[in-house]
Amino acid sequence: MANLELHLPTYAQTIGIGIDRWETGSPVLGIDYKPEICGNPGMLHGGAVSTLLEVTAIASLDAELRSEHGPVSLTPLNSTIQFLRAAGEGRTFASATVVKAGRRLANVAATVWQDTPDKPVATAVVNVALAPRTAE
């Protein structure tokens, strides 16, 4: 599958979230630490981690649906985030798995890590509403 030009939210771009690489058709997103997105000094803010998780969930779903159906309008219904360890200075990564994509809703699981995915910084489940794919 060709790697897609995914459009990330303006806020995600503002804080420096970008596509790091593609792994088997799914995007890995990344963000570099900078003082503007810290909570405690030297630690990534929980809000920045939450943003990375949610943006990655939507981007991964977008990539999967587009390859099958073309562009689909995606709106997050809710995000549930578990914070597991602090993210320090350095680069932080995220990937996501589409657990289920139905006609109207999708459930996506995302993970954020720094050194290795086996030591997650945070995980999230995001429920997403899909816009109708055909005109009424």
């Binding site: 939210p9 303006t10 806020y11 995600a12 503002t14 804080i15 803010h45 929980g46 809000g47 920045a48 939450s50 943003t51 949610e54 943006v55 997050p76 995000s79 985030i81």
Partner: peptide, 19 residues
């Protein structure tokens, strides 16, 4: 405008709201 989701819609991004 730096914190919106889609510039055309103009709503604050959910990421900024989560923070």
């Amino acid at each position: 405008e730096a914190f919106v989701d889609d510039p055309a819609a103009g709503s604050m991004a959910t990421g900024a709201i989560m923070t």
